[in-house]
């Protein structure tokens, strides 16, 4: 469960200070599928980075299952990212020189999983997203949808508690978008994940059980 209390994030620029998040109070229970919408520059991605322990708030606190992410050291944050949080990015962010299988394996390296176990689990993860036969392909040999499936397999191979997705369908056509959303929705249900999706796409947002809107650094619930 996430608990955000008076969460504020500001960025100092040469002539002004930009407030990306302004005193956000929010609770996300375990196992919830949440969609966050809002205009560009409204603070969506900043909020997602806070949830993913990728950045620290300027003030306030953010706790994940009791750990205050705003005060933990970098090594501890890396451990939390390695074990509890899975990321899916709009641009897929696969390592271009590694095969699909190796890209998935990379998520198990920080956990110290043995090479044999890594291959086994990565193969299973690829099969779960329907890419078992593409394991040896490089990213540039895969379509956008396939690359995003590899990214989802990489995010889920470590059995995280939370899956954070930043515009996961932003670079995909409608059919592929729906396929990816079907996949994410199925995984959410099967694995009891907490899923937070940042999206501009209302069709995607409508599939979430809870919708939030963030604008000018403040957050509100959507019906």
């Amino acid at each position: 469960m996430y608990t955000l209390t008076s969460l504020t994030k500001t960025y100092s620029q040469p002539k002004r200070t930009v407030t990306a998040l302004n005193g956000v109070d929010l609770t996300i229970p375990d196992g919830q599928l949440v969609a966050i919408q809002g205009p560009t520059g409204g603070g969506k991605s900043t909020l997602l980075q806070m949830l993913g322990a990728l950045d620290r708030p300027t003030s306030g606190s953010i706790a994940l299952r009791g750990d205050d992410l705003s005060t933990l050291g970098e090594a501890k944050l890396a451990t939390i990212r390695a074990s509890e949080i899975g990321f899916v990015f709009q641009g897929f962010n696969l390592i271009p020189t590694l095969t699909a299988l190796e890209n998935v394996e990379m998520a198990l390296v920080p956990a110290g999983v043995s090479a044999q176990e890594r291959v086994h689990r990565a193969t299973q993860a690829l099969e779960s997203v329907g890419l078992g036969e593409r394991a040896t392909h490089l990213p540039n040999e895969l379509s956008g949808g396939q690359q995003q499936r590899v990214a989802i397999a990489r995010a889920l191979v470590k059995n995280p508690k939370v899956l954070l997705a930043d515009e996961p369908t932003g670079n995909l056509d409608e059919q592929t978008r729906d396929e990816i959303m079907d996949l994410l929705e199925g995984l959410w249900r099967d694995q009891n994940l907490t899923v937070v999706i940042v999206t501009h796409d209302s069709a995607v947002a409508k599939r979430a059980e809870r919708r939030l809107r963030i604008a000018n650094g403040t957050i509100s619930e959507l019906a």
Binding site: L54, A78, A82, G91, I95, V109, K158
Partner: peptide, 16 residues
């Protein structure tokens, strides 16, 4: 930069 950012996001430590 994006590659290393991604590695950090999936839990790679600075030392690694």
């Amino acid at each position: 930069t994006r590659e290393f950012g991604t590695l950090k996001a999936i839990g790679w430590s600075n030392r690694r």
